[in-house]
Write a protein that binds this DNA or RNA. Structure first.
Length: 427
RNA sequence: GGAGGGAUGGCAGAGCGGACGAAUGCACGGCUCUUGAAAAGCCGCGAGGUGCAAGCCUCCGGGGGUUCGAAUCCCCCUCCCUCCGCCA
């Protein structure tokens, strides 16, 4: 969440920053009013509490002096104050909770460098690869869902039979390809990023820390009986690994990588991209994550994007890099780059990575701080990025690699992970 | 699932109705000494909120309760450890 003090000190500035992402300025006015009310209520309660403390101390003294009459008089006064305290406390807590709720729903402030814009159409294309766009043959213009059926790699019908639509089931070479991608990715990050295998079901507090709750509860799967949430991305558990902790500055940046399944209800996208792997409820993804100081954040963002790009080049997939505009940047992020691959069979650009700098928005929610050289505490910055999301990569690889005879040639870099078998034979 | 023991500052660990926001050690910061460093000595040092400030308030796993007053007593919950049961 954003720092309430910034709102208090300069509401106009916050209004302007959040207006860039479509937040109504009146929201900030509401927040300022709630905050003022909260501080007044807390102050009133604290005064009574101070009174009770003084009285209690005096009761003790009177008792020691053997003056039981005075002790009883003071105790009576304290009891009366206690009743007032209970009322004022109820008010104060309600007022504080109102401020917190308001803050939990407000998105992060966009970074200065994040370009203006209202939605996806105004994102900025920074670069693309390869420099000259490839041409694609007719045999590459076959959608992956057809290829999947033809070669026995993807069985969406049986997936739906088990779990409903948009739950893919991979078979044979198709399943092995996924496993190869995950191994390839983790190995390539291993030198700089510690490999983690976190739980995929998490507590409500864990989801709140990243900003996925309370605002986006419709997008997540919830197991009611145990009150657990299926993670939409490894970013969620990784952010909470150090929730509530104080890190040493010397340990920063702390870099992690994790492969997990990711679960998304896609409630807001019902009926869109329903075929194949373009949009699914469960997919595997390798995530990069970092905790760092504010000074380290911008460089880290660039190096994480570079890792994603490097992998796409290694996989031989055509891609472009988008800098998201303020209006399209995710709730928790200050600045985001998306990587999109071109998939010739469906003739679409598919988002396969989103790399975000969340400034201290998540750290504030999760209360993750570090001790600076001067001894003071400050919130860390968090960054996350996919490297990469496999379902759409799988689609692009199968479509791009399709040969005239119907077989599929996979990238050289995956050979070690495919027992040397880079070619999925034609049917 | 059953039985017992725990949870206190960055870490370790005392405290078990009032003088406790909390001993002590380590870590950390400053200073002295030193050519420099180490060692030693001295001083400082939990966090959050609010206030111009002095100050005031909150926090001893979480939530309730008893009491004039709770880290300390009672109840519930969570997590950790030991033992038993079950289990991939």
């Amino acid at each position: 969440m954003i720092d309430i003090r910034l709102v208090r000190e300069d509401p106009g500035n916050i209004k302007a920053a959040l207006a860039r992402r479509g937040v109504d300025p009146s929201e900030i006015d509401d927040l300022v009013a709630l905050d003022a009310a909260s501080r007044a209520a807390v102050g009133a309660r604290d005064e009574v509490r101070a009174e009770i403390k003084v009285l209690s101390k005096q009761v003790g003294e009177a008792r020691r002096d053997g003056d039981s009459a005075t002790a009883e008089t003071l105790a009576e006064q304290s009891r009366a104050a206690g009743e007032r305290e209970r009322e004022l406390n109820t008010e104060a807590e309600a007022a504080q909770e109102a401020v917190r709720q308001k803050l939990l729903y407000l998105p992060n402030l966009p970074a200065e460098e994040t370009p203006d814009g209202a939605g996806p159409d105004e994102n900025v294309e920074l670069r693309s690869w390869p420099e000259t766009a490839p041409t694609y043959a007719d045999h590459q213009r076959v959608p992956h869902w057809d290829i999947g059926v033809e070669l026995g790699l993807l069985d969406m019908e049986r997936g739906a039979k088990l779990s409903g639509s948009m739950f893919p089931l991979y078979r044979g070479y198709g399943a092995r390809l996924l496993r190869a991608l995950t191994s390839f990715a983790l190995d390539s990050h291993a030198e700089e990023f510690e490999e983690v295998r976190p739980p995929t079901m998490v507590l409500t507090d864990t989801m709140i820390s990243t900003g996925h709750l309370p605002k986006f509860s419709d997008e997540a799967y919830h197991l009611e009986r145990d009150d657990l949430w299926a993670i939409p991305t490894a970013e969620v558990p990784l952010t909470s690994m150090w929730r509530g902790d104080i890190l040493d500055e010397a340990d920063l940046p702390l870099r992690l990588t994790a492969a997990t399944a990711c679960f998304r209800r896609e409630a807001g996208a019902a009926g869109r991209d329903t075929r194949g792997l373009l949009r699914v409820h469960e997919f595997d993804k390798v995530e990069l994550f970092a905790y760092c100081t504010p000074d380290q954040a911008r460089d880290l963002l660039e190096t994480m994007v570079a890792r994603g790009e490097r992998m796409l080049q290694d996989l031989g997939l055509q891609y472009r890099v988008l800098e998201l505009c303020a209006g399209d940047t995710g709730n928790s992020a200050a600045h985001t780059y998306d990587l999109e691959v071109y998939s010739p069979g469906v003739d679409m650009w598919l988002e396969v990575s989103s790399v975000s700098w969340c400034s201290d928005y998540q750290a504030r929610r999760a209360n993750i701080r570090y001790r600076q050289a001067d001894g003071n505490l400050a919130f860390v910055h968090t960054l996350n990025g996919s490297a990469l999301a496999w379902a759409r990569i799988w689609a692009a690889l199968v479509e791009t690699g399709r040969q005239a005879d119907g077989s599929i040639v996979l990238p050289e870099v995956l050979a070690p992970y495919l027992r040397g078998e880079r070619v999925i034979p034609a049917a």
